[in-house]
Nucleic acid binder design. Structure first.
Lengths: 350, 350
DNA sequence: AGTACATACTAGCACGAGCCAGTGAGCTGT
DNA sequence: ACAGCTCACTGGCTCGTGCTAGTATGTACT
């Protein structure tokens, strides 16, 4: 009964309208009356298929709701043509970078697989998932774990880290010229007449070390006194608010406060308003990242745009190169940082 | 040369230290000197493997850095045991839901595949990706497209929509009791002595229609005059700020403003401060969602917690049930909404 | 008429793992 | 001594697709 000769295979395939089962290439082929391989040629957009046949195949595929099975493609293909991305979705900058990664990867012919970290989902778990799918390279945006730990979890897959240094690793690194950005910011404030410029240094921020270095260098270069408020914790608006309280209780208010991220600037600005201090009338405030909130009309933050698009482009480029087998020493790529002047900075009131 | 009899297969397998190639079950088996099937039994945690053999297999797997190939599992297995989730990562509530979805899906033995929408990445593209991976069910958090469009893109896969109604569809729907939440909020404000309660109605928010309905019902029930400011656009803080401007130019200020989301409340609060109005001294402000920002010390928003965990649980449960083939009419599940009273509401100043 | 070659299509193996149906060794009971 | 059974393990087919190596058919050129 189950041995009907050559017809058996086709019989199985055409009996495919089993509930929930997706159409396969064989289903499409059977419908048109050609071989499965020909359908494959059409979907891979290869030459050597008659125009009329191609159209009939495409029509049948549409009718049957055929869509290629990615798992089968990954399994059979010599490469999976996919890049994995790991990030914390609660931070805005990584999100901006992610959306650009999608675009650049598509251009390069790569698929993007996303795996997020959360409070309860560790980097280890996120990595395992992507390794399971055999991504050809991973892009880690602001990872928390160290090199050894990450490398052990990831195995032989190439890695690109964005927004954080990885000294001594074999990872490629993409970070913005945070030092230059902060340097430019200090000069901007100085040119407005500010001499008392305080810096709010939130740890747990992309490239926070580099940014602080830029502030210090620029202040030293101008012969100005450095004043740094260091804060930790993930809730960066809260950090800004705490900075506001420290400033208010500190006696002498600075003319300008530079925050190393926009969220902190937002919290700072809000909290200072509650103390009756208006920005920029009473105090100038700056952010960093040029996130969505920096452009809000009531904040209108002077900030530094670290060009998520450029970071994404560099990261994808590095990932694709490694996926294609490029050897060589790990590279460190610095992307540009551009000062964005808005209305939260003005000449000091004194 | 390539016909060495029975040894050929093993030769291929053990020649596996080709650069970048991941170990497979066969590699592990060859290392231990057992069959591939036995390795499979170990990794599927099935009975019938000797204790010592099992340990040797696990040790070899660790040494070789073996990890199961998800694509192969999906392809071969009778089911892919994966649920796809589509959402816009720039909104906070979907993020809260997502992180819980990961947990509930894991409990149910399902993998989660994430595909985000962005300004440049349409729902269509996000759907195609997940369909390609043959997710057994999709969870769409606050999708923009309509039923017909979504169903066409998705094909026969079951769908659960979160945070939005889908009248006339065959999708399961999970939404919070937004009406009850708003009702409770109105009563809370009324009990503080407020009679002039304005409502900021941002469209493009989860269940915005239901929430507005709750406000209207409660106000009508108390015999209070309804005052609704309707705003559209994605940038919800901006919407709150615009509402503040409308209120200031309107002449008579309400004693309390209810926003249908926390971000708008934040923007409103900030902008009102710039006009010199302090919350809650001069005006009470409420949000909705109990997002991260609602808990910020300087906002400390009275809001409604719609329990992302509960929504995630319900969504995963529905998705898993459908994936397992449960038939029946589409269900609409309402999850609870709980009033969270903080310090942004107080008795009116007059 | 025969060679050369392009065009349109097909056969068959392979990817890595799941799953069903075995197989052989050792033990028990009669 | 032999059936009956469990335990530990293996053979072999399969999922849906990519890829290499083909086979027909026609058309052009010597």
């Amino acid at each position: 009964m189950n041995n009907e000769g050559a017809g058996a295979r086709n019989a199985r395939n055409s009996g495919s309208d089993r509930i929930g089962r997706r159409a396969t290439m064989s289903d499409v082929a059977a419908r048109v009356g050609v071989s499965r391989q020909l359908v494959g040629l059409v979907f891979r957009n290869e030459a050597g298929v008659g125009v009329e046949t191609r159209n009939r195949i495409l029509a049948a595929a549409r009718q049957l709701g055929y869509s290629p099975n990615t798992a089968a493609q990954s399994l059979r293909g010599s490469s999976t043509r996919s890049i994995g991305v790991i990030f914390n979705p609660y931070e805005l900058t990584p999100l901006d970078i992610l959306s650009r990664i999608y675009e650049h990867a598509a251009t390069a012919g790569y698929r993007v697989l996303v795996s997020t970290t959360t409070e309860t989902r560790t980097e280890q778990v996120a990595i395992d998932e992507l390794v399971g799918y055999r991504c050809e390279a991973l892009i880690l945006i602001a990872p928390k774990a160290g090199f050894v730990e990450l490398r052990r979890a990831i195995g032989p897959t190439p890695v690109v880290v964005v927004g954080r240094g990885m000294p001594g690793s074999d990872f490629d690194v993409v970070r913005s010229q945070g030092a230059d950005g902060m340097d430019g910011m200090v000069r901007h404030l100085a040119s407005l007449g500010h001499r008392s410029i305080c810096y709010v240094h939130c740890l747990d921020v992309l490239d926070s070390d580099v940014r602080l270095g830029g502030y210090r260098r620029a202040m030293a270069g101008l012969g100005l006194e450095q004043r740094v408020i260091e804060l930790s914790g993930d809730f960066t608006e809260e950090a800004g608010a705490r900075a506001a309280e420290l400033l208010m209780s500190g006696g002498d208010l600075p003319g300008a406060v530079m925050c190393n991220n926009d969220l902190a600037a937002s919290g700072l600005s809000h909290r200072l308003l509650q103390f009756g201090l208006h920005c920029p009338r009473d105090i100038s405030i700056t952010g960093y990242d040029d996130n969505r909130i920096a452009g809000l009309s009531y904040l209108d933050l002077t900030t530094v745009c670290q060009d998520p698009n450029e970071m994404a482009r560099a990261a994808v480029e590095a990932a694709v190169a490694r996926a294609a087998g490029s050897a060589g020493l790990p590279r460190e790529i610095f992307t540009g940082a551009r000062l964005v002047i808005r209305s939260s900075t003005a000449a000091p009131s004194v």
